[in-house]
Amino acid sequence: MTVTALLFASYADVLQRESVDITLPNGSTVSDVVAHVRAMPGGGILPPSPLVAVNQEYARPDVVLASGDEVAIIPPVAGG
């Protein structure tokens, strides 16, 4: 299955992209996406367990993903 990881702010700057399509085995989780991105050049900027949203809702690391899911890796937020 393929999911799309979205990157923002400092993460997007360091990884030099705002999104990346990732192909993973069925049954993969949020953690698997994070591990994949952390293994990319510059991926070390991500903490081991960053905030993640799946299809625009915050999600735990063990959430199982479906093909086509949008997995946003959220840097520390700074609204207001």
Partner: peptide, 20 residues
């Protein structure tokens, strides 16, 4: 909770993402 980030711009011309 709001997924918003801010990059501050300084008088010396540099800028930096804020990490609270």
């Amino acid at each position: 909770r709001l997924p918003i980030w801010k990059r501050e711009e300084y008088t010396d011309g540099t800028r930096e993402w804020v990490d609270p």
